[in-house]
Design a protein around this nucleic acid. Structure first.
Length: 259
DNA sequence: ATGGTTGCTTAGCAA
């Protein structure tokens, strides 16, 4: 049975991570890859190197911060950049592509810095604007995956120490509620269709030996509509990718779909 | 308890 493999990964600089991205493509042979924190303008995007590896690039980047992209074996039929509303927001945090049998959205939700800060308010409003984009531009009846570093751990089992993280921007109830409003559009967590247990994380702080201690959070997600959920066959987090020198602080999340 | 690390860009910010 033919499987379609989808990966989401916050690379924390595509140029710094390019050798690891190329190795990931070789190792997993994904059909579509959603990247976040590429930190590169579109004119400097390593398009040629990725094309040599057999992938098309759809980039939406900026200098130093943010930046998202979608890599794919086939060209998308349709694509778009940004939240497509009337704000003058210049942060490059969302790109989407429609393929035969899959619409993929690569999103880098704002971290939020500190609860109560301006960046925190931006995070909450960004999530509301993302919900509005789904309402306006997409159909919950289409096979769609909202992928990315959503910077929210949905549940206590997604956090190594929920009490300690309860007031943090990554696990605060207001952030969880805002993400729940996005999901309420009609999305389910593809990873949780295949794994119930806690202790499975996608991000570990570079500091304090967080990775060897497994002091992590599950903040990178593949959220899918019902037609895609039905086709979901497996999901896993590629923890190997977090090991060694020049690792991103995030691990890729891999999901396989039928067809 | 405010440590510790990485990346971009060059000393300070963001995560």
């Amino acid at each position: 049975m033919k499987l379609m493999r989808l990966i989401t990964w916050n690379v924390n600089s595509l140029r710094a991570r390019l050798p690891r991205v190329l190795a990931l493509l070789e190792r997993h042979q994904p059909d579509v890859v959603c990247l976040q924190e590429t930190k590169v303008t579109d004119d400097l995007f390593p398009r040629a190197e990725l094309e040599a590896a057999g992938y098309q690039s759809l980039a939406h980047g900026q200098r130093t911060y943010n930046g998202v992209a979608i890599l794919s074996k086939v060209a998308p039929r349709e694509s778009g950049r940004g939240l497509d509303d009337d704000s003058d927001d210049e942060q490059a945090r969302l790109v989407w592509a429609r393929f035969e049998g899959l619409t993929a959205i690569s999103a880098y939700v704002p971290n939020g810095s500190e609860v109560g800060s301006e960046k925190w308010e931006y995070k909450l409003s960004w999530l509301a604007r993302a919900r509005s984009l789904l309402d306006r531009r997409f159909d919950r009846g289409e096979p769609l995956a909202l992928c990315g570093d959503l910077n929210v751990a949905p549940e206590a089992r997604d956090v190594h120490d929920p009490d300690r993280w309860a007031e943090s921007v990554l696990f605060h109830s207001a952030a969880r509620d805002a993400l729940a409003q996005v999901r309420a559009w009609g999305l389910v967590d593809a990873f949780r269709l295949h794994h119930e247990e806690g202790g499975l994380f996608s991000w570990w702080d570079y500091r304090m030996l967080a990775f060897p201690k497994n002091h992590g959070l599950r903040i990178d997600h593949v959220l899918v509509t019902e037609p895609l959920a039905k086709r979901s066959r497996d999901a896993f987090i590629d923890r190997q990718e977090r090991k060694g020198k020049q690792a991103s602080d995030h691990a890729p999340v891999v999901v396989d779909f039928e067809g």
